[in-house]
C-alpha cells in the first residue's frame, strides 16, 4: 500500500516502576533488494525500514536496526519501565531517509 500506516499498542496507565510491553506494527513492503522484476528481469532496488526507536519523555529507551531479513509489515514488541507520566514517541526510518512517527500518552500512577 502506498500510504505507510503505523499501529502502536501501549497501556494508557501503569504503576510507577512497573515494566510494560509495547507492540508496534507498520505497513511496509520491506523490499529486500534481492528480488527481480519478473517481466524486465531487472533488480528491484532495496527499500526497507532500517531503523526503529522509541523515546520516553525524550529519552531513548529502546531502538532497533533492521536488515532486509525483517518481514514485510514489520512487527516489533519490547518493554519499557514506567517512570513518569508523559509521551512515548515512536520513529521509523526507511532507506530514503523518510521518517514515520507515532506517539502515545502514558499515565504513571
Amino acid at each position: 500500500m502506498a500510504k505507510v500506516k503505523a499501529r502502536v499498542k501501549s497501556p494508557k496507565s501503569v504503576k510507577k516502576g512497573e515494566v510494560f510491553q509495547v507492540k508496534t506494527l507498520i505497513s511496509h513492503k520491506m523490499e529486500s533488494g534481492r528480488r527481480k522484476n519478473k517481466k524486465t528481469g531487472e533488480n528491484i532496488p532495496r527499500m526497507i525500514i532500517n531503523s526503529f526507536a522509541c523515546n520516553y519523555n525524550g529519552k531513548e529507551v529502546f531502538a532497533s536496526d533492521w536488515h532486509p531479513a525483517v518481514s514485510a509489515n514489520p512487527y516489533m514488541a519490547f518493554h519499557v519501565r514506567a517512570v513518569d507520566s508523559g509521551t512515548l514517541d515512536f520513529m521509523w526510518k526507511d532507506d530514503s531517509g523518510k521518517e514515520y512517527k507515532k506517539s502515545a500518552k502514558i499515565a504513571v500512577t
Binding site: M1, K5, K23, I26
Partner: peptide
C-alpha cells in the same frame, strides 16, 4: 488483533 498485520488495512 494487534499482531494481525491485516488490521493495518482494516484501520485505514
Amino acid at each position: 488483533d494487534f499482531e494481525n498485520p491485516a488490521q493495518i488495512w482494516v484501520d485505514q
